[in-house]
């Protein structure tokens, strides 16, 4: 059987929120080490990869690997009923035809339980190679969210270029062009406010702003976002979840005609 108890159930709620605008049906893979998700959006433009280590849980038991096939809009409806400080418990039998969810709150003494029918979802697994990227940028996730949200008024495509000057986001449309430059900045005492740019060679790639905005739904999961780029390759946008896991998005670049 599978049984997992997460004291901060809100983490799981935020994970669901971070992917539900990209995919509808998803398998959560349970193993002895972790819960994980890998799925592509229906347009095959973006890939989400999530991992949450068993060490994130107060209790974790998974007798044999299983996939929980979930409909995210339904899961999201159930999580709307979860309180901010609730503990979450997940349970499934090895047959994995239903998932039990429990939201417990010691303070108010409430226990909510739900039984969710699971689906058999045929998933295409992609092999993502472990690549050494030419540019790696770490920046506050709230800044990244603000930039890609603000640039939407200028156009549909964002050019992201990493040079010695810094990291530049540009969008061009009918009304003109907008550029936002982030320079390396490690002045703040708080490490989460730092912008660090690790560049081996300059990279310039174009991406759909619509997708970059979908990815920023993961902002509440992490104060920091890590962008990794290499010429001609999909960008990696990673939101680390403390030392316990991550949500990573891969987005295929647009190519000039």
């Amino acid at each position: 059987m599978f049984e997992a108890r997460l004291a901060n159930g809100n983490i799981f709620k935020m994970i669901v929120e971070s992917i539900r605008e990209l995919v509808v049906d998803v398998n959560i893979d349970c193993s002895t080490e972790e819960l994980s998700i890998q799925c592509m959006d229906s347009a095959h433009v973006a890939l989400v990869s999530m991992s949450l280590s068993q060490s994130a849980f107060d209790h974790f038991r998974c007798d044999r690997s299983l996939s929980l096939g979930l409909n995210l809009p339904n899961v999201s409806k159930i999580f709307k009923m979860m309180g901010r400080d609730d503990t979450m418990v997940l349970k499934a039998e090895d047959s994995a035809d239903k998932l039990m969810l429990m939201f417990e709150n010691d303070k108010s003494g409430t226990i909510a339980d739900f039984e969710l029918k699971l689906m058999a979802i045929e998933a295409e697994q992609l092999g993502v190679p472990d690549t050494a990227y030419k540019c790696s940028i770490s920046m506050p996730s709230s800044e990244f969210q603000r930039i890609v949200r603000d640039l939407q008024v200028m156009g549909d495509t964002c050019k992201i270029s990493c040079t010695k000057e810094g990291l530049k986001f540009s969008a061009t449309g009918q009304i003109g062009t907008g550029n936002i430059l982030m320079r390396q900045n490690v002045a703040s005492e708080k490490e989460e406010d730092h912008v660090t740019i690790d560049m081996e060679e300059p990279v310039e790639l174009n991406f759909a702003l619509r997708y970059l905005n979908f990815f920023t739904k993961a902002t509440p999961l992490s104060p920091t976002v890590i962008l990794k780029m290499s010429p001609g390759l999909p960008i990696v946008i990673e939101y680390p979840i403390e030392q316990l896991g991550h949500v990573k998005y891969y987005l295929a670049p647009k190519m000039e005609e």
């Binding site: 347009a43 433009v45 992609l126 549909d156 999909p234 987005l251 295929a252 647009k254 190519m255």
Partner: peptide
């Protein structure tokens, strides 16, 4: 406007 690439062109199915 640039054309959108398909992600499966970069990552093979396993």
């Amino acid at each position: 406007t640039p054309m959108q690439n398909d992600l499966s062109e970069f990552f093979a199915m396993v």
